[in-house]
Amino acid sequence: MNILGLYNYWIVVVLMMIGFYVVIAHENLIKKLVGLSIFQTSVFFFYISMGKISGATAPILDEQYQLYSNPLPHVLILTAIVVGIATTAMGLALVVRIQEAYGSIEEHEIQDQDTQDQMESRLEAYGFRKKHALSVRDLDE
């Protein structure tokens, strides 16, 4: 009984976790964003599922129908979808710039380059002159 009543939520949890795993375990920056959007979309299912009433219809008032699903989760999720696309757009723009600045969008390759930068500035702190660093501004405009 219990299992049947909750199957929807359990599958949604599985979906969320797949998305969450892709975000934190993958190193490709685009893939992470895809994972993030799957994670968020799955949270939307959770909200929409709780608003559903069996046998009800969409909350657009009409004299033919008596039972409507709960409109409030729909409103919240409309807002959340918009927030999601805003985050995705911003994230993609950052990925494009990272590719231009580092020549890669794999996390470990970026980290290697950052470590190198840090070594250089450490050397510089002890009096070695840094060779001309790659200028980000060239690609900026």
Binding site: L94, A101, D114, D117, V136
Partner: peptide
């Protein structure tokens, strides 16, 4: 350029 990765990580 690390500002970009920092921003991405924060995002």
């Amino acid at each position: 350029r690390r500002a970009l990765t920092a921003s991405y990580q924060y995002l």
